[in-house]
Simulated assay, not measured.
Amino acid sequence: MIDLKKLTLLAALAGLASPPAMAQGRLSLLAQGEYVCALPGDATGAAWIVQEGREFAVTGGSSYRTAQGSGTYLMEGKLVTFTRGPMRGAKFMLLGSGLLQQVGRDGKLGRMRCHRAGPVED
């Protein structure tokens, strides 16, 4: 016959061994530089349509700046969340080195992409 205390202990230990469902991943940093954001175009015109006023620069550490001011971001795994400053609340998914795609409020990938266009300009 199975001992109920042992079974309860095993169940509790199994719960501790599994990672939390909401864990995003390790903290890291974006590549420093100037980022340009654009929406996809169409077959009759430009492939990408640059979104004026949406550009930003990653300046070091977890800091960024825009024409409207500076702020901070948090990168957990591939999810980038702007936590302070003019882009506060904006979320992006890192697709590759220097390439981000907007994440909507519903958690789905949006249409806008931002790519690292070069080093930080002073």
Rank of each mutant, 00 (worst) to 15 (best):
S70N: 04
Q101P: 01
R113T: 10
W48Y: 10
A23D: 01
R111A: 14
Y64L: 02
Q51V: 15
G61I: 11
E52A: 10
A11N: 05
P19A: 02
P86V: 03
R116M: 03
V50P: 04
T66I: 01
L30Q: 10
S18C: 09
G15P: 05
A90N: 09
L7G: 00
A117R: 09
V120C: 13
L30A: 10
A47N: 09
T66F: 04
E34P: 06
E121Q: 03
Q68T: 07
G107M: 07
K78T: 15
L30R: 06
A14S: 09
M75N: 06
G98A: 15
D42F: 13
V58K: 06
A38M: 11
E52R: 08
H115P: 01
G15C: 00
G33I: 13
L10A: 12
I2K: 01
M87Q: 12
G45L: 12
V58M: 12
P40Q: 00
L16M: 11
G104Y: 01
G69H: 03
L16N: 04
M22G: 04
R65H: 05
Q32N: 07
A12Y: 10
G85N: 09
D3F: 00
A67Y: 07
A43M: 10
M75H: 05
A12P: 03
A12L: 15
A21W: 06
R65C: 12
L94D: 02
M75V: 04
V120A: 13
L16S: 08
Y35A: 08
C37F: 13
G45R: 13
A47V: 08
G45Y: 12
E52Y: 02
A12H: 09
V58Q: 07
A46F: 06
A21R: 03
